[in-house]
Amino acid sequence: MADSDRSGGLEAPRLSGSGFTVAPLPALLAELARSARARGGTPVMLGLSGLVLVVAQAFVLTAETEVAVVAQIATFTFLVTAYLTWSREPERGVLLALAMLPIVQLLSLVLPTRVVPTIQWFMMIGAPTYVLLVLVAYRMGLRPAGIGIRITRWQPQVRIFLLGAALSVPAYLILRPEALVADPTPVNVLTAALIVTVFGGFLEEGLLRGVIQSVADRSLARGSIVVSAFATGLLYSASLDLRYLVFAVLVGIAFGLVVRRTGSILGAACGHAALLVGQLVLLPVILG
């Protein structure tokens, strides 16, 4: 049996000197993963990562921004270290895909300012997130088709787009967001819709279903939908509305099922964009 197999697929550096045994994070993770392997390995490792993400998100929801930022940095460090020390392929890829979440949270916490209109926050946060998305996809060896950017049968894609457009009504009624466009001229509404489409719907689908679900699909099969729904719930929990959180998770599961069945994220991306444009741009102008 190979060394990495005997040690649970981990390479654990050990440091010692001056009578003290130093237990750096990789060694601790190695120890954790060794015991995790005895109890089933992958589910325990992924469960532990999920727990760390949830705890960090709890800091975002309840603590000062500075504390939340530190928690997200610690979470990113944990996930990346776990990815580097765990040598089991393709399971460990899920950890790197999940490591994108704390970076997105960091950007969302730090970049917006009062002087910048809310609609521009989407671009400010979305542009660096696209950079992250491309880098992770490249690192994971995902080509455009691998993250679902491909045309398959068009009927289910149209159906999921229409479903997304229809779901914008309950989404608006649950959250009642303020209008993103202060002066709703046709040009302003179209510009806002375009920004929300590119930096909201397309980006989130690329992140959640495109990369996270695709990477999880390699090792977890149907469990990948649980991972992407979990990531969706984590990001939307900051809405501070339990009904909206449940709604977002259910929509995430529906989109995840469609993406897994069709192998394409195009319909889900368009549906997600339609949902956000209706909820954040059109309905606040029409009904607000």
Binding site: T65, A68, V110, T113, R114, E204, L235, A238, S239
Partner: peptide, 23 residues
């Protein structure tokens, strides 16, 4: 997604990019 995270920090948002860098 991004909007909901920011909503949490809405009360402590810096006013300008300069304040964001200094926060």
């Amino acid at each position: 997604m991004t909007g909901t995270v920011t909503r949490v920090a809405l009360d402590s948002l810096p006013g300008t990019p300069g304040q964001a860098l200094a926060s």
